[in-house]
Design a protein around this nucleic acid. Structure first.
Lengths: 154, 154
DNA sequence: GATTTCACTGGGCATTATGCATAGAGGCGG
DNA sequence: CCGCCTCTATGCATAATGCCCAGTGAAATC
């Protein structure tokens, strides 16, 4: 899928995102056209979705993160999805196997504010039960480099 | 914390990440120096952490995502964190309140491969119990724009 | 063994963006 | 009224980009 040069390129971009194609080619020791071609390929293959700004919710005034497991009434899935998508504090939503039916990531301005967010999330026809886990620490922030390295060594 | 112009700038960058400062200033209808100053401020304040490449694990050959809730033996937290950080398929790790002690996001090459990953994750002194939820759908992929909009309207 | 295919190289060139500096206008609180 | 700050508008030297092409080497195909 991706080779070592792709892996090194992604690593480099992850470490110094504002780097340009020219500078990247210098660091990797290959021609500029090569880097450009690799980048184009990685993007058109969907390996690299984009270079969106990485925004810190805490810096926006939402320092509290929580995960909520939701149990959904049969057949209400679509409505619940629509409802959750309309709540700005819902950063992510997954439907899952297992005890709960959905798992979502929430942020809030404070622990007290989290209550308001949860009320808004679960205050909806179709959600039977919710259990929330508040995040205390984040020892491993969302990362991709180790996986890229592993993938590039095949 | 951030005003409407900041919000519009972040939205624009999220929508068209490879846009430059000059083009952004044209779209927003302000001077180039203003955009440059706003960007510098947002970055130095930590609102924008960076512009890392958004890599799709599925495109790397890891189409299966799961969340594992781990229960940890008292006093083993530090060792478990170190262990989990060494597993490339662990994309994210949080310590939480609630029933479990930790929550982690995993990826795997297949459902069968997920078993291998889970074995590697939980096959460690200090992890008492693990329960896994496999992700089926992702109706709301990790997003920040709605929150940015809300934050910029205060 | 010969040939085609493909990625990479290295170069050139016009266009465009960047970093940096400066001067002036407008709003706002002391 | 004054100082402070932000935004505007501009200029300029430097650097990067997009696009082009001819040549090279290696691997795959015939």
């Amino acid at each position: 899928m991706i080779d070592r040069l792709d892996g090194r390129l992604i690593e480099l971009l992850a470490r110094e995102p504002r780097i340009g194609v020219l500078e990247a080619s210098r660091r990797l020791g290959v021609a500029r056209g090569t880097v450009q071609a690799r980048l184009d390929r990685l993007q058109s293959q969907g390996v690299i979705r984009g270079f969106g700004p990485d925004v810190d919710p805490a810096a926006l005034g939402y320092p509290v993160t929580a995960f909520a497991t939701l149990e959904i009434k049969q057949g209400q899935g679509a409505d619940v999805r629509t409802h959750l998508a309309s709540v700005p504090e819902v950063l992510e939503l997954h439907t899952t196997t297992g005890h709960g039916d959905m798992l979502c990531r929430l942020v809030a301005r404070s622990n007290a504010d989290l209550q308001r967010v949860i009320d808004r999330v679960v205050g909806f026809e179709g959600i039977v039960r919710a259990s929330t886990a508040i995040v205390m620490e984040n020892p491993v922030p969302l990362r991709i480099i180790p996986l890229v390295q592993q993938a590039s060594e095949d």
